[in-house]
Amino acid sequence: MAGNLLTATAAIARKDLKVEWRTKTAFMSSLVFAVLVLAVLYFARDKTSVGDFDIAPGALWVTFTFAGMLGLNRAFLLERENRALDGLRLTPVTPTALFLGKVIGNLIFLGVVELVSLPLFILFYDVPIWRQLPILLAVVALATVGYVAVGTLLSAMVVRTRFSEVMLPVLLLPFLVPPIVSAVQLTWRILALRPLSELTGWLSLLAAFDVIFFTLSLLLFEAILIE
């Protein structure tokens, strides 16, 4: 049983990544978007009144959030083409395996987008990141897990609607307020070299969001799949 779950989960994640590798549709869109947002926010400010520290955390998370949205949208649109989701439902694959496979595929996709965007962020914004990189990456990972879990659930929910590309941000963004606010606060404190004790509250909020929303998304996914 557990073996089947693992096999199916891995097969779904691998398939999603292989399709994305071949087409690069979502990746290229996300990357172009990330470069554009980082550049626009960099050039839009008056450097004498708005410092790098003030704008960098927000710029980073606006980039990650909206660039990730493009990938999340794609995750289930893929299953709508040729009604592939029906094909999945005709197999013994459980909703849990499908959800986990999609989450893993999305996590790897978003992880790659984030890893490619981060050097651009460093390039544009003069912030002392290198010593703080491990803790910053941990925060990025923590925020991304919750984001992807809720995003995957909602992406499956809106895929049958006519305007799914529009519906996903509308539904997802309210859910993202707690993790994105936490991530911005944490990023600001990390870049400002604040003591670890100042991070724990926000880290706890981020971790709680992950646990609650990952569990809820997993439990609700089966109901979403039923037509």
Binding site: T7, A11, K15, R83, A84, L88, T91, P92
Partner: peptide, 29 residues
């Protein structure tokens, strides 16, 4: 067990014929 052929292929355009069937083979365990 049930198998179905419908109006749509239920497969992925970006994968080859062999890859599509390998994917479904895995899903069927």
């Amino acid at each position: 067990m049930v198998g179905m052929v419908a109006h749509h292929t239920m497969m992925y355009d970006a994968l080859t014929a062999r890859e599509n069937l390998t994917f479904y083979t895995r899903l069927h365990g």
